[in-house]
Write a protein that binds this DNA or RNA. Structure first.
Lengths: 209, 209
DNA sequence: CAATATTATGAGCAATAGCTCAGCTCTTCG
DNA sequence: CGAAGAGCTGAGCTATTGCTCATAATATTG
């Protein structure tokens, strides 16, 4: 009843089932369109067309184009399920297995729609807020891995902070490229070697220090 | 004298010094603008403005916006100077030093303008031709590294193809992220650990195989 | 079955971008 | 000097895109 000039968030909440469905349709369509055309060429009209709704309806659910991609990103982050440290075997002699589990996690979390993911983080003009969200999750993940390294008896690297950062980055990013590119190398082989590399790094050895 | 309707390449060749200078000015301006605004928001008008020439002149040197970025990319690739295998010490016990040289190479080649480089390969709509050029250089680099691994007596990994691919990707991409991000970790530490990781991987060890 | 709230529609506005072209200025050279 | 061609100019055309709004359709409620 008061202030008659809001309209910051188009549509407060969907009240009917129909609305929920439409919202989902938009997101699904957007995922397809962005994935196929990229962010810039993935126009809102194209998204509406694919969702089989009018462009006007689309803008009742999202205040602008960026918000659509933001919703997709948040959804992806929320879905991302990494195995927790307490589900892992930390007894001596199990480092190789532990690392392999981490690598597999990364691959699983990127297998859904690698192309879309790439576009979300590489092409999209992420708002500061979104960037912060992504960053927060990244830092959390690094801290988690750092903690794991600290607990595992087989780990012999000294600079745990750098190691954790390096590992997360390496695993994440190699997975990215692996999924996005037309595989130049079989996934299993790549997975095995990537795990090997990380494992050997963590074991430390006499040649480097 | 014949066919009066070409005009595929605006401006065949600069005949006067002035023209060369203008061309350079455009490229320099474009590098700045793309680097600051990104590809989409780096408009041709902005580039012309920064180069202090008219928009019309710009289009006498480049047929379209993409061509400008293509020129920048080609230039970067051409400039990229990787140390050759025959400049490296391949005697036993030198693997750590060799790897460190490779890592340093990567960092050097990205230190000029990391932001621009990121935009060139991540945001730009590269033509198939350009993609091929990039790809060709990538493959060449991988082959080079594979060869190096095969020659070096300290290398104990068996799957050289996968190893080469993995190393190039890892080093390249870690460097990327390192330069682009507001450093969360000092460069030297990261460089050292990255080199350590690769070195230990190549040495192989008893824990993995 | 009204009356009201919610959801859907799509023509079209405003902004912006890539790019053209008719004509100008400057350089070159006999 | 002066003519011819190389190089430069920038208003503005064309196309596209994100997004609005007046209106209609559908759902809900009393």
């Amino acid at each position: 009843m008061p202030s008659a000039d809001r309209r910051l968030q188009p549509r407060r909440e969907p009240r009917q089932v129909r609305a929920e469905l439409t919202r989902e349709r938009i997101l699904a369509a957007a995922a397809h369109i962005f994935s196929e055309y990229g962010y810039a060429a993935g126009t809102t009209n194209r998204i509406a067309e694919r969702a089989r709704i009018s462009i006007g309806s689309l803008y009742q659910y999202f205040p602008n184009k960026d918000a659509i991609l933001a919703a997709l990103l948040v959804r992806h982050i929320d879905r991302g399920t990494w195995t927790q440290a307490d589900e892992l075997d930390l007894s001596p002699g199990t480092l190789a297995a532990t690392v392999r589990a981490l690598v597999r996690d990364a691959i699983d979390n990127h297998s859904e729609d690698p192309q879309l993911l790439r576009i979300m983080i590489e092409e999209a003009p992420l708002s500061q807020e979104l960037l912060d969200t992504v960053d927060r999750h990244g830092k959390q993940r690094v801290a988690q891995i750092r903690d794991l390294l600290a607990r595992h008896p087989d780990v012999r690297v000294t600079d745990l902070d750098t190691a954790a950062e390096l590992i997360v980055l390496t695993v994440e990013i190699n997975t990215h490229k692996l999924m996005a590119d037309p595989r130049p190398i079989p996934v299993e082989r790549f997975e095995r070697e990537l795990a090997n590399m990380v494992t050997r790094y963590l074991h430390g050895d006499r040649h480097t220090e």
